[in-house]
Design a protein around this nucleic acid. Sequence first.
DNA 1: GATAGTTTCATACAAATGTTTGAAATGCAA
DNA 2: TTGCATTTCAAACATTTGTATGAAACTATC
Lengths: 229, 229
Amino acid sequence: MASDQTRSAILAAAERLYADRGFGDVTLRDIVAEANVNLAAVNYHFGSKDELIAELFVTRSIQTNRERLNELRAAEEKGGGRAAIEDIMRALVGPTLRGCLGPDREGSTAARFMIRASIESVPPIRRIKNREVDHLRKFAAAMRRAMPASSDTELYWGLHFALAMAHHTIREKERLLRLSEGKCDLDDVRGIIDRVVTVSVMALTMGDVPSKPAPRPVAMHGRLTRQDL
Amino acid sequence: MASDQTRSAILAAAERLYADRGFGDVTLRDIVAEANVNLAAVNYHFGSKDELIAELFVTRSIQTNRERLNELRAAEEKGGGRAAIEDIMRALVGPTLRGCLGPDREGSTAARFMIRASIESVPPIRRIKNREVDHLRKFAAAMRRAMPASSDTELYWGLHFALAMAHHTIREKERLLRLSEGKCDLDDVRGIIDRVVTVSVMALTMGDVPSKPAPRPVAMHGRLTRQDL
DNA sequence: GATAGTTTCATACAAATGTTTGAAATGCAA
DNA sequence: TTGCATTTCAAACATTTGTATGAAACTATC
C-alpha cells in the first residue's frame, strides 16, 4: 500500500515544482528527487510525463468547475429557476479568481500551479482545455435564460469578455502590479470579482444604456446595436 | 552578399514553422531544412536559437508598437493635444487586433506567428514582453490626460481590461468560434475593435452611467464608485 | 590574381531527457 | 513458509537538441 504514498508524493512534488519553476524547466529527475522516489516510479504510476501533468490539471480543473456549477445552481435556485445575469457571471469568474488570487493564496501550491497552467501552454493541458467548451455551454444556456431578448452573438461575446478579464488578470497580475505601481490591489479578490462582473454585465446589456450618446456613434458596423427588448 | 539571403531565409522559414507548429516542436534542424541552409548558419548569423526567436518577435512587436503610437499621436493631434478616450483605446487595441485577425490575415505568416507568441510563452519572448510596460505607460499618460478626473486605479484597470479583451480574443479565437458555433464573426475585425473599445470605455466611465440602477447594488465594496467629475 | 575577410558546410560534441528493462524487494494470501 | 502480484530500484537506452569546430568555398579589395 506504499504505492499510494509514492503516487501522492509524486503528485505533490510535481505540482510544487511546476508551480514554482514552470513546465519548461522541470524534468522528471527534478520531480523524483523532490519526492524522494525512484525515477521509474513516474512511468510506472502514471504511464508518462504528460499523463502526470494531465492528472494534475484535471484534478484542479474539476474542483473549479464544480464550484462554478454549484454557484450557478445556487443562483438559479435563488432566482426560482432563472438566475440573474450578475449572479451567473459571478459564478463563472468567481471560483477561478478566488482560486488564483488573493494574499492567503500566495502560498497555495494549487493556485500557483493553475496560474502556471494559465500562462504556459503545454500540450497535455491544452488538450484538456479544449474540452472546456462543453462546460461553458451550461453558462451560455443560463445566460440565455436570464436574457432571452439578447442575441446569441451578444451573449457569447459577453461570456468571452468575462473570461478574458478574469484570465488575463490572473495571467498578467505581475505586469498590472508593475504598471500601476501597486495602485491596483491584486489582493482584493472580492473587489476584482465585482469589477469583472460589473463590466461583463455592462458589456452584455450594452444596447440598453444609451443614456449618454454612446461613447462614439462612429463605425459601429451594425454590430453593437441595441437589443430589441 | 549571399549572407543576407541566408539570414532572411532563416527568418522567413523560422517564422513560418513557428507560426504553423508552435515553438514547442520546431527544431533548428527543421528550420534550416525549410530554409535550405546549413545547420550552423543559425548560430553563425544569430548566435543562438533564442536570439533568433527574439529577433523575430521584436521585429513584429516594433511594428505593432509603432502603429499604436502613430494612431495615438494622430488622435492627439485631432483632439488638439487631448485625445478622446475612445480614440486612445482604439489606438491601443486596433493594431494588435488588425494584425492578428481578419480573413485576409489568414495566410499572413506574421499574424499567425504573433498569435503563437501570444499563446505559447517561451523565455526569450517573455523577456521582451516584460519591457512592454514602458510602452503602455505612454497610453496610461494619454488616458490620464483624457480623463483627468479619474483615479489612476480606475485608469489602469481599464487599460488592463482592454488588453485582456483584445489578447484573449486573439488567443482563444478558435474556442470562441467553436463555442458560438460560428455566430461570433472573427473576421469582422472592425466590429471586434469597436466592441472592445466600447466595452473598455464603458469600464473606464463606469461611475458616469447610473441611468439604470447599476446592474446590482450589491457588494460593491466601495470599489466601483462613481468618479467625482 | 593573390590575399584577407566572410560565409558555408559536413561533422562531431556534449548534455539532457523521457522511457524501458530486468532484477531485487516488498506485501499479501493460502 | 510458499507462491504470486505489486512495487521499487539502479542502470542503461535511445533520441533529440543546441552548439562548436575546422576546413572548404566564396567574395571583394588591392
